[in-house]
């Protein structure tokens, strides 16, 4: 760490106290920004320098009991791809940015339409016809300027998938067609990284976590070559805000486990299902 950065941080530490009474040195958001300006350092580098000095940036204080300093460093140094920035993706970026995942690759070639307003948190009346990826990047910047957002206003295809997710540690599948999910899975497999996948229809949804080498999506959607239609039950039942937000939150829970190297229970080879008609929540075994 450059000396001037270390000195600037040390001079501005707030002693702070953890819920259990232990000391918890923190750095306020205003000080993070001031130090970044004064030293010409990116906000993320200031936060990382603080964390390496045992100091928690104030914005992560309420995560701190679950994500300790080494976890927060892992998150800030991580790169995650979010494929699809509609209902699922719009919520996923909100959570990952607030958790402080340091780099987000935002992929969607679509633009907002009025029928997105019911569930897509990024979609507002003012953004009709506007690129979803562009608005997603604006939202990330507004939430957490430590996070570097890379925007791809293009759809993921067989041709570009590998390049789009390069250098990422996890890919979060937030797509709305079944076929493209298999393209993401193949690219993640080749890149050797895990993928979190969610799908919803009406009040029903499911989420799974797939590591390279797992049978993955074919356990959920059947073999790719058997796919009859790009769409599922959602073509009839539509997509509801409460369902997509819950599924997206579960995806983030899994993505954050991957990025913080948690070894406990996950949705690997399992399928979390929900049905809000009768409040069914269950983890099913896929193997």
């Amino acid at each position: 760490m450059p000396r001037h950065l270390a000195e600037a941080i040390t001079a501005r530490i707030d002693p702070g106290v953890a819920p259990d009474g232990a000391p918890r040195p923190t750095l306020s958001l205003a000080h993070v920004h001031r130090i970044a300006r004064e030293t010409g350092t990116h906000v993320r580098q200031v936060e990382l320098a603080a964390l390496h000095a045992g100091v928690t940036p104030e914005r992560y204080l309420r995560n701190r009991q679950t994500y300790d300093i080494p976890d927060q460093i892992r998150l800030l140094e991580a790169r995650a791809a979010v494929v699809g920035l509609g209902g699922l993706g719009g919520t996923v970026i909100e959570i990952l940015a607030r958790a402080g995942v340091g780099a987000l690759v935002l992929i969607d070639g679509d633009r907002f339409e009025a029928h997105n307003l019911n569930r897509q948190l990024l979609c507002t009346e003012a953004y009709m016809g506007t690129s979803k990826a562009t608005i997603a990047a604006q939202r990330v910047a507004a939430i957490n300027d430590a996070v570097q957002a890379t925007t791809h206003t293009t759809f993921l295809t067989e041709e570009n998938a590998r390049d789009l997710i390069a250098e990422c540690q996890v890919v979060v599948d937030c797509l709305d067609t079944i076929e493209t999910r298999f393209i993401v899975e193949q690219a993640a497999r080749e890149a050797g990284i895990p993928m979190i996948s969610a799908a919803v229809a009406g009040l029903t949804g499911h989420v799974t976590t797939i590591f390279p080498g797992d049978r993955g999506l074919e356990m959920v959607h059947g073999p790719r070559h058997h796919l009859k239609s790009a769409k599922g039950a959602e073509a009839v039942l539509g997509n509801l805000p409460q369902t997509v937000v819950m599924a997206a939150a579960m995806e983030c829970s899994e993505a954050l486990k991957v990025l913080t190297c948690r070894t406990g229970p996950s949705l690997r080879n399992k399928l979390w299902i929900m049905d809000l008609t009768d409040n069914t929540f269950e983890v099913l075994s896929l193997v």
Partner: peptide, 8 residues
């Protein structure tokens, strides 16, 4: 029993 589900 589940039908195909693919929305987002």
């Amino acid at each position: 029993l589940f039908p195909p589900v693919g929305g987002g």
